[in-house]
Structures are given as structure tokens and as C-alpha cells.
């Protein structure tokens, strides 16, 4: 465990909690892509199946359980409890265009051709693109609430910090996971355009709105 991974994990946790609290406190999930949240729930479910087979540390287990729990709570709020506030008309990204290629790739490029490992690989690939329905929704409506942009910032920051963590681990531990690194780079790149808007607009007190 190094400082980059720890702050990366905490940044990820912050993102998840910010989103859940925003929805809970405002009693509304307007502007939030339910599809992205379902994909994240699927990511955590398929990645953390090793909760049942191996114990790594109390920290590891606790974080996994919190991530899974929060992601299902978010999906529950969007599709069940606060369904009336869900903006389904603008959440039109076709997720099968992500799931099918990602599933195929997980079968072809993995560390070990076993069910658990293929599901882990699937979760890594899927996570890298799971935010696309949310970004697509923002590009469609042309704006995002400031709190939603904080969520996206912490979610992007988490993967950027993981990239530094992997450089650190490569130098100091000889650790190198090509699948995680390539997917992590792709994931971070997807946030670059958003990061630019966040720094130039939101941090200067303006609302994030895109030119028509």
C-alpha cells in the first residue's frame, strides 16, 4: 500500500458517497445516468467475487463491501425509490455496445482462462468505459449540476492516482499488471475532456454547461 493507492481508493469512495448523498438529500436523481450506475454495480459484482474465495486484508474486504453496498443502494434509489425523478429520456446510451465487445475481449485477453479471472477481466474492461452513458447524457442535455461534476472529478481522480500507484509499484515492487494498466489509461483518458471543463469552469464558480 502506497500513498497514491490509498488516496486513489479514498477518492473513489468519496465519489461514490458524494453521488449517493446527493441523490438521497435532494430526493432526486435528475441528471444522473442510471445506466452508468448499473454498469458500476456490475463492475463491482464481477470483480469482487474473490470476497468468497480469498482474504487479502480487513481493509480490502471492508472497502469492497462498501463499494458494492453503495453501488446497489444508488441503483435502488434511481430505479425504485426515486424512479419518478429519473431522467430516462436523456439516458439513451446503448449499453449493449459496451457490454458485448467488453465481454468478448475479456474472453480473448486475460491472465488466466478461468471463470473468476474472466469475470475479473470483464470488470476491469467494463469499468474503463462504464462512465460513457453519464458523459453521453451530459453532452445531450448540455449541462451538469455542480455536485455531479464533483462526483465525476473524484471518479476520474481515482484512476489517475492508480496510474501513479502502478508506476510506483513497478519501480519499487516489480509489480506489473498489463490488463489493469491499459484499461486504467483508457479510463483516465476518457475523463481528460471533463477534467479540462472542471478546472476551467466549475472551480471558477461557474456551472458546467456545454456550448449548444
Amino acid at each position: 500500500m502506497n500513498i497514491f493507492r490509498l488516496t486513489g481508493d479514498l477518492s473513489h469512495l468519496a465519489a461514490i458517497i458524494i453521488l449517493l448523498l446527493k441523490i438521497w438529500k435532494s430526493r432526486s436523481c435528475a441528471g444522473i445516468s442510471g445506466k452508468s450506475q448499473v454498469l458500476f454495480a456490475l463492475v463491482f459484482t464481477t470483480r469482487y467475487l474473490d470476497l468468497l474465495t480469498s482474504f487479502i486484508s480487513l481493509y480490502n474486504t471492508t472497502m469492497k463491501v462498501i463499494y458494492i453496498g453503495c453501488s446497489y443502494a444508488t441503483v435502488y434509489l434511481i430505479y425504485m425509490k426515486l424512479k419518478a425523478t429519473y431522467d430516462g429520456n436523456h439516458d439513451t446510451f446503448r449499453v449493449e455496445f459496451l457490454i458485448v465487445p467488453v465481454g468478448g475481449l475479456a474472453f480473448l485477453v486475460n491472465h488466466d482462462f478461468s471463470p473468476l479471472e474472466i469475470l475479473w477481466t470483464f470488470s476491469i474492461y467494463l469499468e474503463s468505459v462504464a462512465i460513457l452513458p453519464q458523459l453521453f447524457m451530459i453532452s445531450k442535455t448540455g449541462e451538469a449540476e455542480t455536485i455531479t461534476t464533483h462526483y465525476l472529478f473524484f471518479l476520474g481522480l481515482y484512476r489517475a492516482l492508480y496510474l501513479i500507484n502502478w508506476i510506483w509499484r513497478f519501480y519499487f515492487e516489480g509489480f506489473f499488471d498489463m490488463i489493469a494498466i491499459v484499461a486504467g489509461v483508457v479510463q483516465t483518458i476518457l475523463y481528460c475532456d471533463f477534467f479540462y471543463l472542471y478546472v476551467t469552469k466549475v472551480l471558477k464558480g461557474k456551472k458546467l454547461s456545454l456550448p449548444a
Binding site: 474473490d50 480490502n60 473468476l116 475479473w120
Partner: peptide, 10 residues
């Protein structure tokens, strides 16, 4: 188990 990959990151 043999050949099993251990992932220690989240």
C-alpha cells in the same frame, strides 16, 4: 489454487 491470480487492488 494453482494458477489462480490474486488481485490485491480494488
Amino acid at each position: 489454487a494453482e494458477g489462480e491470480v490474486l488481485h490485491d487492488e480494488l
